[in-house]
Amino acid sequence: MALKMLLPNGFKKIGWVLLIPSTIIGFIMMLSPNDDILDLHSTVFALYNDEILGQNKHTGFINTNITNTLVGVCFILGGIMVGFSKEKKEDEFIANLRLSSLMWAVWVNYILLLLSFLFIYGFGFFQVMIYNMFTVLIIFIGRFNFLLFKSKMTATYEK
């Protein structure tokens, strides 16, 4: 089935190590009024660089603040490892829970996005767009782990 698309169980721990700090730092950066909470500059290769108030849109090496890049990459890689690693005992029921959690996450995410389109404007909407890059993974991971926990809890009452 879709088991072929799952990572080995060992990736889950690595995923949490990447996901939790990047989520916390990301939140702090989003909520902070200052732009330079963490200022890590480096030369990177840009396929497309369209600087705000900049002159050129070009491909090439640029020297820029890569804090957002690092936080975003760590979050995405961590989230994918946490969400799409096999459980210790991966079977069809767990796969079913995973699929239904994924559907649920997409539904909830797009309902929230629809409401945001309708009721949030200006700079607030720009922030919504940024949050929206990450919410599907977060909602999926939350829902999937909740369902796993619920099924483990109800199973312990029976022998």
Binding site: E87, D91, I94, K152, T154
Partner: peptide, 19 residues
Amino acid sequence: VSVSRQTIHAIESNKYIPS
């Protein structure tokens, strides 16, 4: 049958139909 205990419990509680 090489599944998790939660799967057997879910089948017995009619929360899951096995393949």
